[in-house]
Amino acid sequence: NSFLSTTRSRSTALEFVLLNQKTDDVQKLIFEIEINPRLQTKAFADITQMSFFGKENEILIMLGALFRIKEIYENDKEGIWIARVSLASEDDYQLKEIFSYMKNRIDDDTDLDSLGKILIQMGQPEQAEKCYRRMLDESRLALARAESGLGIAYLDCRKDVESLKHLEEALHIRQSLLGQDHRDVGECYKYIGIVHWFLRNDYDQALFNLKKALEIQEAPVPSDFISLAEIYSNLAATYKRMKQYDLSLDYHNKALNIRQKHLPSNHPDIAGSYNNLGRLYESIGNYSAALEYYEKSLEITRKILPPTHEDVIRTENNICQLKKKLNE
Results as ranks from 00 to 15, higher is better:
L277F: 06
H309G: 08
Y293W: 09
N275S: 15
L247N: 09
I258V: 12
I258H: 02
P264K: 14
L256N: 10
Y239H: 13
E310D: 13
E299Y: 10
L256R: 09
L256T: 12
Y232Q: 01
H262Q: 09
L263F: 09
M242E: 15
K303F: 07
I258Y: 09
A290C: 13
S288I: 13
N276F: 03
L247R: 06
A236Q: 02
Y251D: 15
Y294R: 11
K303C: 03
L291G: 09
K261T: 14
N253C: 15
A255M: 09
R302P: 04
Y287I: 05
H267V: 05
N286M: 05
M242T: 01
I300M: 04
P306F: 05
A289C: 08
Y245R: 13
M242P: 01
G278E: 08
Q244S: 15
L256Y: 12
M242W: 10
L298H: 10
Y251C: 01
H267K: 00
H262N: 14
Y232L: 01
Y294V: 10
P264A: 11
L277C: 13
N253S: 04
K296S: 08
Y281M: 03
Y293F: 11
Y287C: 11
P307W: 07
L305A: 04
T301H: 10
P268E: 07
K254G: 08
Q260G: 08
R302E: 09
L280S: 04
L263D: 10
N234E: 06
S265F: 13
D311L: 08
G285K: 11
S233C: 05
R279K: 12
Y251G: 02
E292Y: 14
L235G: 00
L291F: 06
I284G: 03
H309F: 15
L247P: 03
Q244F: 02
K303V: 00
N275H: 13
L277R: 07
S283R: 03
Y239C: 07
Y293D: 11
E292M: 10
A237P: 00
L263V: 05
G278W: 04
L249V: 06
A290I: 10
Y281L: 07
N234G: 00
H309Q: 04
S273Y: 00
K240V: 03
L256I: 06
S248M: 07
Y239K: 06
Y287L: 15
P264N: 14
N234K: 04
